[in-house]
């Protein structure tokens, strides 16, 4: 177990280094000159050249990357070119909003997905089952910006139940969380359904039923806990979906998280910020996957760590 963990951690670190190299290389070939961005529109060619020199943008790729990498080792993500603020501070200021949104999304997707999956499994083969599974497909097939705009239109503009975007109170959180959670809800309902069907087929459930226990008790006391665990273990893997989703959802709802930070930075070619957000996302994704893998055997003894 310890050996496995150490190996996986080392692997994860290598992957993160790889991610940082690939991203840095991509940004390196970007056809926009950060020095010119910083220098502003009244700058002379000399000023631009001077700034380029100061930022070390004339150095070869390897040298630039190595400098960045050494900074990372000290926990230094660099300073934003245009905001002139430590990237770490900028990300830290916005991370709580993004984490809150993800938490909301996890709650939404589990609540919707597990309920739908459970009902579908119990009503297996009926129209309810089919109907729910079509709904789950709709959730998987809906582009997030459309879901977001639709929810906004119906619940905020027309009905006025929720604010039209923004950040601050619980009611601000509802619509963006729902939007981000719909995709996951689609997947979870399908997983929950098959997991539940699996469990209901198990001998001990049949035995319990045969002993005359009420269906309600069997389902909720015996079957549900066993069916739900493998599904919940997948949450770690959601992080990847979320990290893509936040760029869209935060921009639709004006949510002040790292997704918006990244999008603004991309527009302005603020390379240190793009690097920072990409790395933070990659760290989250890798940790999420690691967590899912580590937790899996505790939940399902058939899985062994390799």
């Amino acid at each position: 177990m310890i050996g496995y963990l150490v190996r996986r951690l080392l692997q994860s670190i290598l992957i993160l280094i790889g991610v940082s190299i690939v991203t840095y290389a991509l940004l390196y070939v970007l056809p926009a000159d950060p020095a010119r961005q910083i220098a502003g529109r009244s700058a002379t060619a000399e000023t631009v050249a001077n700034i380029r020199e100061q930022l070390g943008l004339n150095d070869p790729f390897i040298v630039q990357y190595w400098r960045y990498f050494l900074g990372l080792l000290h926990g230094d993500f660099g300073r934003s070119y245009l905001q002139r603020t430590e990237v770490a501070d900028l990300v830290a200021a916005r991370l709580p909003a993004t984490l809150l949104l993800m938490l909301g999304a996890i709650v939404c997707e589990l609540a919707m997905g597990l309920t739908m999956g459970l009902v579908a499994a119990l009503r297996r083969g009926t129209n309810t089952d089919q109907g729910l599974m079509v709904v789950s497909f709709v959730g998987v097939s809906a582009p997030q910006f459309v879901t977001g705009l639709l929810l906004l239109y119906v619940f905020a503009v027309r009905l006025g139940w929720f604010p039209i975007g923004g950040y601050g109170t619980f009611s601000h959180l509802v619509l963006p969380s729902l939007t981000l959670g719909v995709l996951g809800a689609g997947w979870y309902s399908r997983m929950m359904r098959s997991s539940m069907i699996d469990v209901l087929r198990q001998d001990y459930i049949r035995t319990a039923r045969a002993k005359g226990l009420k269906r309600f008790v069997v389902v909720f006391r015996h079957a549900l806990p066993n069916a739900i665990l493998p599904v919940i273990a997948m949450i770690g893997i959601d992080i990847g979906l979320f990290m893509s989703g936040i760029v869209v959802v935060e921009s639709v709802f004006g949510w002040p998280g790292i997704g918006q930070l990244a999008w603004q930075a991309i527009q302005r070619v603020d390379i240190p910020i793009i690097m920072g957000v990409t790395l933070v996302s990659a760290i989250a994704i890798v940790l999420g996957n690691l967590l899912a893998d580590v937790v899996a055997p505790f939940i399902d003894p058939r899985i062994k760590l390799r």
Binding site: A39, G40, S42, A43, T44, T47, I51, Q54
Partner: peptide, 13 residues
């Protein structure tokens, strides 16, 4: 001063 990296330096040329 170039160390300031001011976008307005050029105005004072």
């Amino acid at each position: 001063d170039p160390k300031t990296k001011s976008p307005g330096a050029g105005f004072f040329s």
